[in-house]
Design a protein around this nucleic acid. Sequence first.
RNA 1: GCGGCGGUGGCGGAACGGUAGACGCGGGGCCCUCAAAAGGCCCUGUCCGCAAGGGCGUGUGGGUUCGAAUCCCACCCGCCGCACCA
Length: 948
Amino acid sequence: MSEQRYDPQQIEPRWQAVWAAERTWEVSNEPAAANGVPGNGAHHPAPGAGAHAPHPKSYVLEMLPYPSGEPHIGHLKVYSVGDALAHFHRRLGRRVLHPMGYDAFGLPAENHAIATGVNPRESTAASIASFQRQFREWGISIDWSRELATHEPTYYRWTQWIFLQLLHAGLAYRKEAAVKWCPNDQTVLANEQVVDGCCERCGAEVEIRQLEQWFLRITDYAERLLGDLDGIEWPEHVKTMQRNWIGRSEGAEVMFRCEALGVDYPVFTTRPDTLFGATFFVMAPEHPDVARLAEGTEHEQAVREYVNHALTESNEDRGAAEKPKTGVALGRTVTNPVNGEQIPMYVADYVLMEYGTGAIMAVPAHDERDYAFARTQGLPIRRVIVGASEPAPSDFTAPGPGADSAAITQPGPEPGADSAKIAQPGSEPGADPASIQAAWERSDRSLPYTGDGPLTNSRPDFDGMGNREATAAIVQWLDREGKGHASVNYRLRDWLVSRQRYWGCPIPVVYCERCGAVPVPEEQLPVELPEIEDYAPRGRSPLAAATEWVTTRCPTCDGEARRETDTMDTFVDSSWYFLRYCDAANDTAAWDPAVLRKWMPVDQYIGGVEHAILHLMYARFFTKALADLGHLDFQEPFQALFTQGMVTKDGAKMSKSRGNVVSPASIVERYGADTARCYILFIAPPDQDADWSDDGVEGVHRFLSRLWRLAAEVADRGGSPSRMREGADGRMRPSEDSPHAASPAGPHAALPGSAHVPTRWPKRGCEQQASVSRLRSAHAPTGTAIEGDDLELLRKAHWAIDKVSADLRRFAFNTAIAAVMELLNECSRLRERASTETLRFALASAASLLFPFAPHLGADVYERLMGERVWEQPWPQADPALLEREEYELVCQVNGKLRDRVSAPADATPEQLKELCRAAPNVRAHLDGKEVVKEIVVPGKLVNLVVR
RNA sequence: GCGGCGGUGGCGGAACGGUAGACGCGGGGCCCUCAAAAGGCCCUGUCCGCAAGGGCGUGUGGGUUCGAAUCCCACCCGCCGCACCA
């Protein structure tokens, strides 16, 4: 028996060459072209389907990489996950679309260009080449015919086209607004790109600038983006993040009139039930009317100073959580529409211009922020909802008689009473601070109360009503009176898409003195990104310096015009790439809707959770908008989503500064791609973060080596019904330099160029249960039964088939690989006792099951043992008869504790099982002298005797 | 504060309400070898015991159940998202 060594450096390139030469993983858009399509489901019928039934499609997509430097370990993980699924789906008989592309525009390449002067096009191209090479070295089954990169004019031409569609539909617009500006990257940012007041990319604190920018009207889609989450199979936490981000609030818009100016100010509130408790009114410092309101009042100067201070204060300071509430009076009042009260107006920075109407009604008794503000300002507080345990007597203040909530919180005037005045807690506005403080000390400790309860101090017809019920009643009443209406508010803001940077997709608009902003006609697309010399941003796009490019003619009047010099956020590029893959070669349209219909939606999308909001929200928005415009006929791009966890080293994120980066290239060089891929899937469930361990890689490598060596040995044993396999039609055959071909002994020596002794094995097109019937026929040509060690090994193989199939369906790659390890361990254990044919079947099954994770080894081992290409074989199916045993180990419990195990026949009756249990030696010891009061029998599992 | 996820050996992790710790790493012992590497075999939660066997064990405290890592309640800790959102 020859000693053979598992040598991935030999095996992997050979199989990669086959897949490249035969373009194995390409799929055409025409399922009908049965013979013209290599690979991908054309080789065998779908399970349970007739030979002519169409193959169901499966679009398996991993998020496209941003090509910067070399691929890192996270790329290895995401593409290992996706590739395993792609292979699994193909072998289940589906036509699998599994493409690849590059998100090539973006800041890192541009910053590199600024630092080195190297054109971003060049550094990007170098990086893409590196990604391409490594993807091939990893053996990822990609349909390279659909490859794309977002920085190529053939791609961004259509990005621009989409922008024009949105523009024509009013979904893209230009507006001056307070926007987030990153002083380091010298560009504006989308809200989604600002994290804790800092630039998501570089960490610099963002500034607020008043600028005219391009926006996409994603807010129009807030309701659908929210509602349609219910229909897609995404992880709950991702849906939750999107829901949080959209931030839907139901409530009412209510009008508060300022008589002095004769202006109605709408406010949004989620608590119309507390309207009668509104004792003041607050505007955001950015509210355009603040200055006008204060004008001519004694507070004018104070307001001006406060607003100036608020506007110049950094985001971080202003947003500080525990910041004391500040604000100043405007010297005006508005009318509370429900009771006619004149309540004072304030400006305070705890009110945000971006949310709602930039003005609020303040209900200090039932809102913590309003309460805190009221206390700093000595404003009245009126309880209008009775708390559950109210009033909660305080041990410290022991309220005297009459010090109940109503008395302390200054009962409001009778409903409808006009020109009501609200007394300050200190009884007069100007009362000395000590007496105000004293009043507060006596006040209701259970405020602010934000819970539910019946209304009080409101209107006779609402008082006593539960506040939830009252909410609806009050909104109806407001509506009838014309003072307000039900309303829904969202936190989501429109998407700011323009960037003052070079390395992005030009916005296809020109500015004409006479015609204004004019879209570039579609037939003039693409507006190509010009070459420039100086990439440095100077507060405007570097493109502005490309005078020749900027200067153009107006498409409408042919007058002088200037091009838009901002480029698009790169998230625009990646919001539609999954559509382009379907029809990547189309040069007359972004896509043919009929082709999209064949592939979309993506059946399984895979990527990092860091895109839970940005990319995934934008892509959903694009899909819905394009569907509304008639270019698509589906609403959701990604039917199912899987988010893989991060790979860490020593518990920390890998980074150059920490010096804990594990490079996939070095692992692949040392152990081979199959080891790298299996290890990263074996280490932990793929949705979890996982810590890289060098020892762990060794372990997986040992496993693959053992499998390969044992398979090689069994293949060399020969002994099966021998048959020369056809080596015709350019199919892969081990080359002369293959390690085993050079081995001195065994059948290989006799069969150069066709190293293996194939089993008689039905060709493709066989029924799905082929593996079982094959084995049976191989084993029992004369009708003898399989038994003993052979049966045991056969059972283990079928157990593994069943387990791996189930685990693949639930993304449990770690336990799937563990199951193959168990199967191999069993093969090892029985290597001298089981027949060669059973071993051959068991090992071929192991290779077949491992193929999605370790394609090179899977293909190599399978070919050695079976003389067939594993990827052309249908996914194996477990024989249910072999999953059951005629005997099993019955667990015997006494009072729920395991006391013994005995062998029980599979068909034993409950009565028989009870007897078996009682008879078990260690059970008898525990039963001794006790009374059995209850017997629990779980057939196939256990018997539990309850004794006293 | 609100929402989501998680807490199991020395480590990564397994476990339809039914044998806790699969599989792998690490550790220990042995075989092969002149020796080493590679490979192979066995042991490995913890405590008591020569053993048979038994006690204790899935963050903490309760509960439901014949039986709980798993279901329910309360709490503690960790991670992630949102957060002055009216």
